[in-house]
């Protein structure tokens, strides 16, 4: 270890600093935009090709009549079932009822989940006890809450909401807790240093600092909640998308079954796209997070 190499710290620092470019942000951003623009076009083309082929195969198999149509309906049969369901409003009513449940249950889960998450994150005792319990509870499929829900609430709206809540709330809670624990320490230090403490430190620093975690928790909570709700509806057989699925089965109407499945997928996709992708995008552009972070 020679001393000479490090004999003049100051010049070493200077020479290192000279090469630093002062504004590298702008070109990188432009570049990103250009590549994603081209990327989107390519992706759309690929997807159109993929779905055309898929649809073609499906039509071909249906045409060949390997299986009887009541077990393997053709794409046009599904399309007409979809159209009929929309025409007589039964699908629209199903969507409306399911979405209303989802909104109520999800809002409730978010509020309760956040409160729970904050409580767990702010208290060492709760973190070590309740926090650990919540993580293990998350491995329980929410459908397992159905028997309990029926015993407690009977075959009621409340029971469905309870199952939905159990499917959704833990994601929010755990994300909230993660956010509090994993956000960079420097933010709270800087906040305290600038005179924030107590509630204001929480509100102006800790909450926004954990926003990326919260958004991912909200997204995951929605996905889990959505699945739980459809499952619950299939069992409880009250009006809704889940019940429409079961009705298709009871009537031996495979076209309706597939039509409803397509609606469930489409709704899930739409919400994810319109709500959560938008949230993530906003966050990314404001915070400068990497697009895949």
């Amino acid at each position: 270890m020679s001393v000479a190499n490090h004999s003049d710290l100051s010049t070493a620092v200077e020479s290192r600093a000279i090469g630093v470019r002062t504004d590298h942000a702008a070109p990188t951003r432009l570049q990103n935009r250009r590549t994603t623009g081209r990327g989107i076009l390519r992706r759309i083309t690929n997807q159109v090709i993929f779905y055309s082929v898929l649809l073609g195969l499906w039509a071909l198999l249906a045409k060949l009549r390997i299986w009887p149509p009541y077990l393997f309906p053709a794409p046009w049969a599904v399309a007409s079932a979809l159209w009929a369901g929309l025409q007589d409003h039964s699908f629209l009513i199903g969507i409306a009822v399911t979405m209303k449940r989802m909104l109520i249950g999800y809002s409730l889960s978010v509020v309760l989940g956040m409160i729970l998450g904050l409580a767990v994150a702010s208290n060492k005792f709760l973190e070590e006890t309740l926090g650990a319990l919540l993580v293990s509870l998350q491995s329980l499929p929410s459908i397992c809450w159905v028997p309990l829900a029926i015993l407690w609430f009977g075959l009621t709206e409340k029971a469905i909401l309870f199952v939905l809540l159990m499917g959704c709330i833990l994601s929010v809670t755990i994300a909230m807790e993660d956010g509090r624990k994993q956000m960079p320490k420097i933010y709270t230090m800087a906040g305290r240093n600038l005179g924030a403490s107590g509630f204001r430190l929480f509100w102006y620093v800790m909450l926004p600092a954990s926003l990326p975690y919260i958004v991912s928790g909200l997204k995951q909570g929605w996905a889990f909640g959505w699945r739980s709700l459809i499952q619950a509806e299939m069992i409880f057989l009250t009006i809704g998308l889940g019940q429409l699925l079961m009705m298709g089965r009871d009537l031996n109407d495979m076209s309706q079954v597939i039509a409803v499945m397509l609606m469930i997928i489409a709704l899930g996709y739409l919400v994810n796209r319109l709500v959560f992708r938008t949230m993530e995008r906003t966050l990314q552009s404001r915070w400068g997070l990497a697009p895949n972070a």
């Binding site: 420097i186 800087a190 240093n193 600038l194 620093v205 600092a209 404001r286 915070w287």
Partner: peptide, 12 residues
Amino acid sequence: ILIFQEHGLFPW
């Protein structure tokens, strides 16, 4: 007031 080594600005 401390100015941190790694600036500590709030990204939000």
